[in-house]
Amino acid sequence: MATNTESTAATARPELSDYLSDDLVIHGLLVFSIVLMGLPLILAVVMSTQTPSEVYEVTNVGIGSQGLANYQTALGEYNLGQYMWNSFVMASIIVVGKVALSLLAALALVYYRFPYERAVFMFILLTLLLPVPVRIVPLFQLMADLGWANSMLSITGPYIASATAVFLFRQHFMSIPASLVDNARLDGVGPFTFLVKVLIPMSKGMIAGVSVITFIYAWNQYLWPLVVISAQEKQVVQVGIRYLQGASQSGLTQWGLIMAGAVLALIPPLLVLVVLHRPLLKTFAIQQK
């Protein structure tokens, strides 16, 4: 009986006006969730304009009197500009290196006949089991032995080959229609021409997607730079935020300054995401398969 009344109530429901108000509820809930998710960031931006004494008035959530001065101080006096540049160089090298290496590897895997193909692919894929913490101690020693400690090489080298990127390019190459490949064979197109004139132009979206993922990932690195870079001026911005924490002024922690630093460290990846979210989403759609 109970199920009966329930189902009649339900069938009576889809009236136009019901759907409209229903939609309004959905929009309301969605806006609420999004604001809640963004609230800490909005507050951080607001607080980044406050002086320490304004920060210490806890309920003061208005724009502070510092304006952008905290940002200036963070970038200049606290060297955040240098750290951001280091992060930017690191992330760019990793993006370019990873894309280039993975394109070459995928070209070999998809378009070449050679012995032990399957084993080679497995060898690459198995590295998914080896995140940095699994090998951090010997890796650190290796960097020291190579004399790479405190260098850009140490924070980029270990990251420029990647199972994920090879896998993504491989999937994408395999989805290119067979007849295009046949056609290239009929024309006798060489591998280099094929890569440059056909594969790369046809993989623009995927390359953009992999680049975004890699950039955000590289920019987010914290543990490894913390371990391997001890010279402050060579440090990346994520660890640089840590240095800001010591900043205090007449006994008060300069939270406004720290917030400014945090916001600065967020801007580049956020910008990249907003601009390139389309290829990113498409790439993720392939990754999960």
Partner: peptide
């Protein structure tokens, strides 16, 4: 020999002219 495929096998990023020239240029 030259072959024509069911799904046309045209490179989506090249114009018609570039598609037609590509094979000859590669050769």
């Amino acid at each position: 020999v030259a072959m024509v495929f069911q799904n046309y096998a045209l490179y989506p990023h090249m114009t018609a002219a570039e598609n037609m020239k590509f094979g000859m240029k590669s050769a």
